[in-house]
Structures are given as C-alpha cells and as structure tokens.
C-alpha cells in the first residue's frame, strides 16, 4: 500500500477524510448523469458527520467513493492518510478490510453464520487469530446488548438486533472510518432510535470517524456536523 503524507486540521489533528474536487458521472443510456460535481469534504478524526439530501442526490455515490468501492472520475479522496486512487483492486480490498466499516440499510448479514461468526468475519478475512477475533466480536456484541444472541442466526434475530450485529461487524477491526448508509431506514421508529443510540454510543467510545447518510433530519441534527448534498455539491 502506498503511504502519503497527511494534512492536518487547524488545531493540529489529522483529517480522517479529505475529498477535494470530486467528480463522478454515470451513463444512463445516451444521457450522462453528473452525480458529483466537485465535492469538497473534510472530516476530522473521531468526528461524526451526517450527509443529507433528497433521493437521487448522489449520497450513496459519495459513500461509494469515500469507501474505496468506486473511483471518482476526477478529484482526490484521501482516507486515513491514504490516497485511494493509488490503490489497485487487491490493495483496495485490504484497505476496506483494515480501515473501513460499512453499515447498510439492509443489514447484509451472512445468513449461514450466527451473530458471533458474522462479527468475526472481517477479522478472519484479515487473517487474524480466530480466538482473539472471537474475543473481540463477543465483547462488541455484549456492548451492543446482544449477549443472549451470540449463537443466533440472522433469521432468528429481530430487525433491530440484526442491525446491531451489523454495526458490531463494521466496528470489529476498529476501523478508522465508519460509513453508514441509512442504517435506520429499514426499521420502525423505536428500533431506529435504539440503533442510532448504539451508533452514537459506540462511535463516542471507540472514537471512530463516522459518516452517516440519512434522510432523517432529526437524526442528522444529533450529529456533530451536517453536510447537504444538492445538485452534486456538498454544502
């Protein structure tokens, strides 16, 4: 993996996320759709920010680009001091594994693995010692209040519990950045509140830089900063 020097904020802290002049367009038949038109974004390490915007405004695309899942057409994205465009496919996979955690609207837990095993997966992919990975996964699940659900399979868990397992999985390798795309979007208000609280709680305790994409203005208002994505620009 190529390492590059990191910029620092005015108060001397590292920028965990730096996106500058990011452009991204898609082809829709003959039509070219400009989704991101020079996005600028800087997030401090340990900060929790929300990205809001109408449907189709490019929030998910921005998350793809920030999460090394897609490359921008133009511009630079630097995460944890690493310029993402310089990574090849294998390095991108490694980077995602070591530095990023993802939480999606649909939990995307693996149905053939129980809660503990799902949380262990990133660690096993990283090639870490199974017993240590299990210990870490267990402690995260206990933190999330799922001590009685360790050996339950996703189909034996409620929607909220599944999402809690998904959050634990995302944090299992203590990533520098957590990218959450509508993590409460598929839940009823009570469960959504619980999940958001858990996210806030874990984020605060683990100091993970978090980007939360949401439609919910109320939830966004509880984050440190709010970015609004409109017409391909972040304000």
């Amino acid at each position: 993996m190529h390492s590059t020097e990191t910029d620092t904020t005015a108060d001397g802290a590292d920028w965990a996320i730096e996106a500058s002049e990011v452009f991204k367009a898609y082809r829709d038949g003959e039509r070219r759709v400009e989704v991101l038109r020079g996005v600028e974004m800087k997030v401090r390490a340990g900060e929790l920010v929300a990205v809001v915007g109408p449907s189709g405004s490019g929030k998910s695309t921005l998350l793809h680009v920030l999460g090394a899942l897609d490359l921008p057409d133009r511009g630079q994205v630097r995460l944890a001091g690493q310029e993402l465009s310089r990574l090849d496919r294998k390095e991108q996979a490694r980077f995602r594994n070591r530095h990023l955690g993802f939480v999606f609207q649909f939990h995307r837990l693996l149905p053939d693995f129980d809660a503990l095993e799902n949380v262990m997966l990133p660690g096993r992919i990283a090639g870490r010692d199974p017993s240590r990975v299990a210990e870490r996964a267990r402690s995260l699940l206990v933190e999330a209040g799922l001590e009685d659900r360790l050996d339950h399979f996703p189909n034996q868990l409620s929607g909220g519990e599944r999402q809690r397992v998904a959050i634990c999985r995302a944090l299992s390798l203590e990533p520098s950045v957590l990218l959450a795309d509508e993590p409460t979007g598929n839940l009823d208000p009570t469960s959504a509140e619980r999940i958001f609280e858990l996210l806030l709680d874990l984020q605060a305790r683990h100091g993970t830089t978090t980007v939360l994409v949401t439609h919910n203005r109320e939830l966004a208002s509880r984050c440190g900063r709010i970015f609004t994505l409109e017409n391909g620009l972040l304000t």
């Binding site: 096993r124 990975v133 299990a134 206990v142 933190e143 001590e147 050996d151």
Partner: peptide, 27 residues
C-alpha cells in the same frame, strides 16, 4: 452509566449463552 455497567457484564452474559466459542469452521 452504560459503559461502566457493560464493562461489568460481559463475563456473566457470555456464560449465560448456550455457546461460548464459535464453530470450528471459523478457524
């Protein structure tokens, strides 16, 4: 209060479950 409470709980909670170790497959 939560962190302190949870820090006390893990050992008891894990023992409360039917299984303490993941399947051998995970190794």
């Amino acid at each position: 209060r939560e962190p302190a409470r949870r820090a006390r709980e893990p050992a008891r909670s894990v023992r409360a479950t039917g299984r303490r170790t993941p399947g051998w497959v995970m190794s």
